[in-house]
């Protein structure tokens, strides 16, 4: 991911509507994002595009996701 795409993603992770999502995404971006391959990074971008409540329900385990590309990233977010 080039610098511009990364910084755009960063802004969209560190400024959310819900504090819970701010913290979870910022932390993951700082600690786990670099370790993902290109396809996984793209999956994270898709997750970060979700509405705050939906995303928080996934991260907090109150909802599940079937998509085989996104589910592993959700698991990583839950553990981070």
């Amino acid at each position: 991911m080039d610098r511009q795409d990364y910084e755009r993603l960063r802004w969209r992770c560190i400024r959310r509507g819900l504090l819970e999502v701010d913290i979870a995404l910022t932390r993951f971006l700082d600690e786990g994002f670099d370790k993902l391959d290109d396809e996984q990074q793209q999956a994270f971008v898709e997750l970060a595009d979700m509405e705050d409540h939906d995303l928080w329900h996934l991260i907090s385990g109150q909802a599940d996701i079937d998509d085989p590309r996104l589910a592993p990233i959700v698991n990583l977010l839950r553990k981070s």
């Binding site: 969209r12 400024r15 959310r16 509507g17 819900l18 504090l19 509405e51 705050d52 409540h53």
Partner: peptide
């Protein structure tokens, strides 16, 4: 807006 409107803090 600094963010997409539906990501404003009113959402909370």
């Amino acid at each position: 807006s600094k963010v997409f409107p539906t990501r404003s803090h009113t959402v909370a």
